[in-house]
């Protein structure tokens, strides 16, 4: 463990939690009410100096979870199935890869008439209703009660659905690992997907995620979502700034606060594979969820239609038999 990574606990007892909340202006110190409290992070990107200590800490703490693929990779059918191999590019830190779950995105923008570099630590947003988790057809991507989402590489088939449905295309594939090797390695699946899991083991033990712990500028704060959101609003007000991640994709557990509007940052940063955008994002799960109510109404309509038909039929038969005496109304 690096010098900067102490075992500082952020899940305190109830009394200490009160003190921690009271001291919540001290960045990095948080409280969590219990395991099921949804935790969110706040990133004051005006403070980030782009030193990449967080990127290194992420690797140090999570490196043991990185893929360890078997080579040669099984031949996949059809041949156009792309092989994603990052084993020779493990050192890449200027984008997201299966071996780099956090990177610093850089923007050059005008702040109060001055050309300024803004550094934005980018990783999974930990959406409140994460499509990567909810739409995974195998249940390999999972969400915890505390709001973090992670992909279990042992049961991931590597089909890329999580990446394709993610509005930021965060998860990254490595071929040659995961469950597909034991199922139909040539015909279905293609490795496993990797992304920030918000240091779930550390968090479970009451420790801070490594990137938060190590940051010399205390860019990030973690805590119960409602408290962190309040803090984000206060901070945005103070700096006359903007928040990203509150409304995006129906709400996420990551709030970026910036002195510069996010459309300006988005126009300046490099966007592409492994380099997510900063655009507004509609709630991707909402369309289908909005029509789900009809699934309750449809059976009632079916019952009513059949009952109506039966009533009509018996009436017609009564009439044809001349039995109208019961139909006075």
């Amino acid at each position: 463990m690096s010098k900067g990574l102490s075992r500082r606990s952020f899940l305190r007892g109830s009394m200490a939690a009160g003190a921690a909340i009271a001291a919540s202006t001290i960045p990095g110190v948080v409280s969590a009410r219990d395991d099921s409290t949804q935790l969110a992070t706040l990133l004051d990107i005006s403070k980030c100096i782009g030193c990449e200590a967080c990127v290194e800490a992420c690797e140090e703490v999570n490196g043991h979870k990185y893929p360890n693929p078997q080579k040669p990779f099984p031949k996949m059918f059809p041949p156009r199935v792309p092989v994603a191999d990052w084993t020779d590019k493990k050192d890449v830190t200027d984008r997201l890869t299966p071996y780099n779950w956090l990177y610093i995105q850089r923007a050059i923008v005008d702040v109060n008439g001055e050309e300024t570099e803004i550094n934005i630590p980018r990783r999974c947003m930990h959406c409140v209703n994460p499509p990567c988790v909810k739409l995974c057809p195998f249940g390999s991507a999972q969400q915890q009660d505390n709001g973090l989402s992670r992909i279990d590489p042992d049961i991931c088939m590597g089909g890329a659905k999580c990446k394709l449905v993610c509005p930021w295309k965060i998860p990254e594939r490595q071929t040659g690992v995961g469950m597909y090797l034991d199922v139909l390695p040539s015909l279905a699946g293609n490795g496993a997907f990797y992304k920030c899991d918000r240091c779930y083991e550390r968090v479970a033990q009451g420790e801070l995620p490594a990137c938060i712990e190590v940051c010399p500028e205390d860019v990030q704060t973690i805590g119960p979502r409602d408290e962190i959101l309040k803090e984000a609003h206060t901070l945005a007000k103070e700096m006359n700034g903007y928040i990203y991640g509150k409304e995006e994709n129906g709400g996420t557990n990551t709030f970026y606060v910036s002195p510069v509007p996010f459309d300006k940052l988005n126009a300046s940063v490099d966007i592409g594979p492994g380099m997510p955008h900063l655009k507004p994002v509609k709630d991707t799960m909402a369309d289908a969820n909005n029509i789900a109510a009809a699934m309750v109404i449809a059976p009632l309509a079916g019952v009513a239609a059949a009952a109506g038909k039966f009533y009509k039929l018996t009436r017609t038969e009564d009439v044809s038999k001349g039995g109208t005496q019961n139909d006075k109304k």
Binding site: M295, A301, A305, A306, A307
Partner: peptide, 11 residues
């Protein structure tokens, strides 16, 4: 489908 099977069962 749900509307249909409910119709068929009731029918």
């Amino acid at each position: 489908f749900l509307g249909f099977i409910s119709y068929k069962i009731t029918d």
